[in-house]
Design a protein around this nucleic acid. Sequence first.
DNA 1: ATGGTGGTTCAACCA
Length: 259
Amino acid sequence: MIITTWNINGVKARLEAAVAYLRQASPDVVCLQEIKSVDEGFPREAFEELGYTVATHGQKGFNGVALLSKHGLEDVSRGLPGDESDVQSRWIEALVPLGSDMVRVASIYLPNGNPIGTEKFSYKLSWMQRLEAHARTRLLEETPLVLAGDFNVIPEPVDAKRPQAWVNDALFQPESRGAWRALSHLGLTDATRACLPESGIFTFWDYQAGAFQKDDGIRIDHIFLSPQAADRLVSSGVDRGPRGGEKPSDHVPVWVELQ
DNA sequence: ATGGTGGTTCAACCA
């Protein structure tokens, strides 16, 4: 089965491009971020026509995540546990039934955190702590677990074309990278890192200054696998095609194939 | 140092 994550930067602006990509790539499960839509405004019919069950956790104007599955969705839950006062829509998870088998999949839109030195950055770090705590709980279940989304973290210098350009950015702060490593140390596998060359793999290119044409990108969209999911890892990849299309998202789809 | 681009929503915010 193929599980794909894609920050589409607005589902209404991207509907045509998203449908075209899904028709061609036909992933089993899709994790969308930045749908920038309330649940009632999400164009679910367009995805249902492609054979997907749809679950959304939307918000007006900003953020918003969704899950699409060709095998149904069970036990859907919305919102990252750990802070009742957090109203931002950045987390949705569900069980995907595969015959007698199950995979738990989460679609994640981790806070950007810029500018550093503000409450936005502390919100990012506290969100990452909550993510670690929740992942720790989920790992105890020993159900194959896939955490996929826009993590807004550049894990290593090789994950940027120009790492020095990001030294003052929240995506590349030591604290952000440390929180990323803490997730890794729980036993989660970075599927893309495990399957592709170490350098030159990017998932985001800014709209400005011809960044895509210069391949001036960063790798911030990630798929973490629990040990039970990593045991089934076949391959992973990044589809750069949509970034060169009409009205592209600034992010591209990242996928993993599990046995 | 500034401005460069884009989505959503309606002057501003977020990335």
